[in-house]
């Protein structure tokens, strides 16, 4: 059926991303961009500046921005966990995927084929699709938790024993990595690249889905509303207990 612009048709909408979710998403995204750039320059500093040390404070500022963004990331994440308990069902989605459920895998497979241009029609989802959940869990959630723990453990080395960061994080994170802070640095660094890979895929998919799928994507993370573009029947929309 072709949609005649003169004819009225229905575009059902559902409210999916509550305000705290959206605020968290963009705060988190911004913090990660800042952390990755500054973190990269902590690992591989910019070309040396000349002159007197008292004329510059470049590394100092880079590290200060890294730590500030680190605090923001950490606090935002704690609030996000709070929202896990009080938010709607979508706010819990990225924390679980029921791998024991048959339909999870078949839907995941369908989604993979959809991303490879092998099927013509995507399924409709109120929240995230199964593939999104898989990648958000393994490539975002776990790495970001590790980044916060390892980040504050490294931070606690600078604030010295007795400081809260040292007591809460360094005291057990560093022994966990063989008592060797260098090993922890390396993992903190490598995990950045895991998150960057996630972000690249994530943004590609968000833009692609915004164009190609049957539902609004990017605007949903801004307004909170998900619009279904075609004459989608509300019953088709998947919103189950994955």
């Amino acid at each position: 059926m072709s949609v005649n612009s003169y004819e009225s048709h229905s575009e059902p909408s559902v409210y999916v991303y509550e305000a705290p979710m959206r605020i968290w998403h963009w705060t988190n995204a911004l913090a990660i961009v800042v952390l990755s750039i500054t973190g990269y320059f902590i690992g591989s500093p910019m070309p040396s500046l000349s002159g007197e040390a008292s004329d510059h404070y470049l590394m100092g500022y880079i590290r200060f921005i890294h730590f500030s963004a680190g605090y923001i990331l950490g606090v935002a994440f704690v609030l996000r966990i709070y929202w896990f308990f009080v938010g709607n069902s979508v706010s819990r989605e990225i924390f679980f995927h029921n791998i024991l459920k048959r339909s999870y895998w078949s839907e995941l497979w369908h989604e993979v084929k959809w991303y490879m241009f092998l099927v013509k029609e995507p399924k409709l989802y109120k929240g995230h699709n199964p593939l999104a959940i898989l990648s958000m869990f393994w490539l975002f959630l776990l790495p970001v938790i590790f980044m916060i723990f390892s980040g504050f453990a490294l931070y606690g080395e600078g604030t010295l024993p007795g400081s809260w960061a040292n007591t809460l994080f360094s005291s057990w994170m560093i022994p966990l990595f063989g008592g060797n802070s260098f090993t922890l640095h390396t993992w903190h660094h490598v995990t950045m690249w895991i998150i960057i890979i996630f972000v690249m895929i994530h943004i590609y998919v968000a833009v692609r889905e915004d164009i190609m799928s049957r539902q609004s994507i990017i605007s949903s993370m801004i307004s909170g509303w998900r619009n279904f573009k075609d004459d989608g029947k509300v019953e088709d929309i998947k919103d189950d207990d994955r």
């Binding site: 040396s48 040390a53 510059h56 404070y57 590394m59 880079i62």
Partner: peptide, 9 residues
């Protein structure tokens, strides 16, 4: 101080 300033060998 040279580390914080961004002055490296």
């Amino acid at each position: 101080p040279h580390f914080d300033a961004g002055q490296f060998v």
